[in-house]
């Protein structure tokens, strides 16, 4: 702010004109400014224009108030707190909708457990077929073609041996049945090789329908599928439970200060930042 006298040859600066308009010049400077302006047409014009600008700014109409900006009892804007109450009322309804979705989800997950994934071969079939195949494979050990199939499964030889021996253990019931279709189980300790081979082939072909060819050689194939299913059920239950919990908790919780979480008195120098 230059309030010092300026050379008469120089035009008045904007700051001086501005202060002149506001009548904020010290007496000496003001007198000098008046003298200069009286003599200098260019500065006179700028002074008049500056005055006109200030006059226009002062007469700018006050904008219409779009709404009231009163504060609500919770420290958010009164308008937002009203909106929050309305939202909570409509929220009761949305809880039921959410509960419905959760129930649907649980039902769907449960259905995937009960309904078998493939039409003819339920998980039980697959489980039963595995020992049967093993039995067949073990019985046909002399046949060189079947040998590699039995080799990768370490459990196979045992159960196969038992089945072939006619012991018919409880776990291998169906396998024994399948194998004994042409030659009844336990018919003799030494069944004809052809009979056993035929039963093994039949069991193997059953198995081939149930599983892709590569999988037939692996006994524990059924397990991952079951694990996936029980995992899905657990996940579904967990999701449903957490949904219900979350909604219940939210119902009980106090309404937050909506858009202004920083409710604690903030320092006065800056407006609360979000």
């Amino acid at each position: 702010m230059t309030q010092s006298p300026w050379p008469a040859a120089e035009h008045a600066g904007d700051d001086l004109l501005s202060a002149f308009v506001d009548d904020a010049l010290v007496a000496d400077t003001r007198r000098q400014a008046e003298r200069h302006v009286a003599a200098c047409a260019s500065c006179r014009e700028r002074l008049e224009e500056t005055r006109a600008v200030v006059g226009a700014l002062r007469r700018l109409p006050a904008p219409e108030l779009p709404r009231s900006f009163t504060v609500g009892p919770r420290g958010a804007s009164a308008r937002d707190e009203l909106a929050w109450r309305r939202l909570r009322r409509s929220y009761a309804f949305s809880r039921y909708v959410a509960a419905g979705f959760a129930a649907l989800f649980v039902g769907f997950t449960g259905a995937t457990l009960v309904v078998p994934p493939g039409p003819p071969d339920s998980p039980t079939d697959i489980r039963a077929a595995a020992p049967a195949q093993a039995a067949g494979a073990a019985a046909s050990a002399p046949a060189p073609a079947a040998a590699p199939a039995a080799a990768p499964a370490p459990v196979a030889p045992q159960s196969a041996a038992r089945a072939a021996a006619g012991a018919a253990p409880a776990s291998a019931d169906q396998a024994a049945g399948a194998a004994s279709a042409p030659a009844p189980a336990g018919a003799g300790a030494e069944p004809t090789g052809a009979d056993v081979l035929e039963g093994a082939q039949r069991a193997a072909s059953n198995e081939a329908r149930a599983l892709p060819p590569v999988a037939t050689s692996l006994v524990p194939t059924a397990d991952p599928r079951r694990r996936f299913q029980s995992g899905a059920v657990l996940a579904g239950l967990g999701l449903a439970l957490s949904l219900l919990l979350a909604f219940n908790l939210r119902r009980r919780s106090r309404p937050p200060a909506t858009a202004w979480p920083g409710f604690a008195p903030a320092p006065a120098d800056r407006p609360g930042s979000h």
């Binding site: 904008p63 779009p66 709404r67 900006f69 009163t70 504060v71 420290g75 958010a76 804007s77 308008r79 202004w260 409710f263 604690a264 008195p265 903030a266 320092p267 006065a268 407006p271 609360g272």
Partner: peptide, 19 residues
């Protein structure tokens, strides 16, 4: 302008005790 005005009054309300 509405946003800023509301924000200003909310802030003023919160810090009025400190004024």
């Amino acid at each position: 302008a509405s946003d800023a005005t509301q924000e200003a009054f909310l802030h003023a309300y919160r810090s009025f005790a400190a004024f």
